[in-house]
Amino acid sequence: MKHQKIKIFKRLWITFGICFILWIVISFQTKGVDEAILQSNSSIQVINTENIISFTPKKSYQKVFIFYPGAMVAADAYAPLCRKIAENGYKSIIIKMPWRQPSYGYNIPKEIDLFKDSTKQYILAGHSKGGMMAAQFVYENPTLIDKLILLGTSHPRDFDLSQSSIPIMKISGSNDGLADTKSVNRNKPKLPITTKYVLIKGGNHSQFGYYGSQLGDDKASINREEQQKIILNSILSFIKM
């Protein structure tokens, strides 16, 4: 009888594990991104390779925006935001992380020589774990990046960027269950006193991109389009500074 109960428990545990993994895979899939966003047109050239998705204005540009996705999130979940940044006159590049893990791919911009044109300014941004690794990249390469933007992350936490000389902006959501306001405020001493903070009232974690709900996140009280508009306008204002 005891042996039978153990077998039943194991089967239930395996079933639960499989269902949980499937739920995670489904929830992190890209959601609501029109196919046209990933296609070139008369003003934007789109290149989709093994390492990047890039949106390049066909007019001349001086600034390059590089984006690190959150852990487990598909790169094209951030395509609507990055395409709009390109439509405003800046080259925009999403880095595709190996196994969708920013900790494995945060050095890709150096590996593929994205910084070879010294006449350009480079803005590095990242969401969630991607934000953590964007901060890590700046910590390790202080002369390569001109501006840093952190979205939906409480990092840096384990290292100090307070003496960084580059402009930094952190964008948070008041309903973010994974990078809550308390955690963001607790780590403020790790960033320069000049850091610009933007709090999106009603915004949550998953609406920083276009994908499903995320375990541990809180429900947003604004819709994704409204949150994305605030993110875009904040980034554009910061880039123009």
Score class of each variant (00 low, 15 high):
residue 2 K to W: 11
residue 2 K to V: 13
residue 4 Q to Y: 14
residue 5 K to S: 10
residue 8 I to Y: 03
residue 12 L to E: 00
residue 12 L to N: 04
residue 13 W to H: 01
residue 17 G to S: 13
residue 17 G to C: 12
residue 18 I to C: 00
residue 18 I to K: 09
residue 19 C to V: 09
residue 23 W to Q: 06
residue 27 S to M: 07
residue 28 F to Q: 13
residue 29 Q to I: 07
residue 29 Q to P: 00
residue 32 G to S: 08
residue 35 E to T: 10
residue 37 I to K: 01
residue 45 Q to V: 05
residue 45 Q to R: 10
residue 47 I to E: 15
residue 49 T to H: 02
residue 53 I to R: 03
residue 53 I to Y: 07
residue 59 K to P: 01
residue 62 Q to M: 11
residue 63 K to D: 09
residue 66 I to N: 02
residue 67 F to N: 10
residue 67 F to S: 09
residue 68 Y to E: 13
residue 69 P to V: 07
residue 71 A to R: 14
residue 75 A to Y: 06
residue 76 D to V: 05
residue 77 A to N: 07
residue 77 A to P: 08
residue 78 Y to G: 06
residue 81 L to R: 00
residue 82 C to H: 01
residue 86 A to C: 10
residue 92 S to K: 10
residue 92 S to H: 13
residue 95 I to Q: 12
residue 107 N to H: 14
residue 108 I to L: 03
residue 108 I to Q: 02
residue 109 P to A: 00
residue 111 E to I: 07
residue 111 E to C: 09
residue 113 D to T: 07
residue 115 F to K: 05
residue 116 K to D: 07
residue 117 D to C: 05
residue 119 T to A: 13
residue 120 K to F: 02
residue 122 Y to R: 14
residue 123 I to M: 06
residue 123 I to L: 08
residue 125 A to F: 03
residue 125 A to M: 13
residue 125 A to N: 09
residue 131 G to H: 05
residue 134 A to V: 14
residue 135 A to P: 04
residue 138 V to E: 03
residue 138 V to Y: 04
residue 138 V to L: 15
residue 142 P to E: 12
residue 143 T to V: 09
residue 146 D to Q: 12
residue 150 L to V: 13
residue 153 T to G: 05
residue 160 D to T: 08
residue 161 L to D: 13
residue 163 Q to I: 00
residue 163 Q to R: 08
residue 164 S to C: 13
residue 166 I to E: 02
residue 167 P to S: 09
residue 168 I to N: 03
residue 168 I to K: 01
residue 168 I to T: 07
residue 169 M to Y: 09
residue 171 I to P: 05
residue 173 G to L: 08
residue 173 G to K: 00
residue 174 S to Y: 08
residue 175 N to E: 13
residue 178 L to F: 11
residue 180 D to E: 14
residue 180 D to C: 03
residue 181 T to L: 15
residue 183 S to H: 01
residue 183 S to F: 04
residue 183 S to P: 01
residue 186 R to M: 11
residue 192 P to K: 02
residue 194 T to G: 06
residue 194 T to W: 10
residue 197 Y to L: 09
residue 197 Y to C: 04
residue 198 V to S: 09
residue 199 L to G: 01
residue 201 K to W: 03
residue 203 G to V: 11
residue 206 S to F: 05
residue 208 F to D: 03
residue 212 G to F: 04
residue 214 Q to M: 12
residue 214 Q to I: 15
residue 215 L to F: 15
residue 216 G to D: 12
residue 216 G to H: 10
residue 216 G to L: 02
residue 217 D to S: 04
residue 219 K to D: 04
residue 226 E to K: 15
residue 228 Q to E: 15
residue 230 I to Y: 05
residue 234 S to W: 04
residue 234 S to E: 10
residue 235 I to G: 08
residue 236 L to D: 07
residue 238 F to S: 06
residue 240 K to V: 01
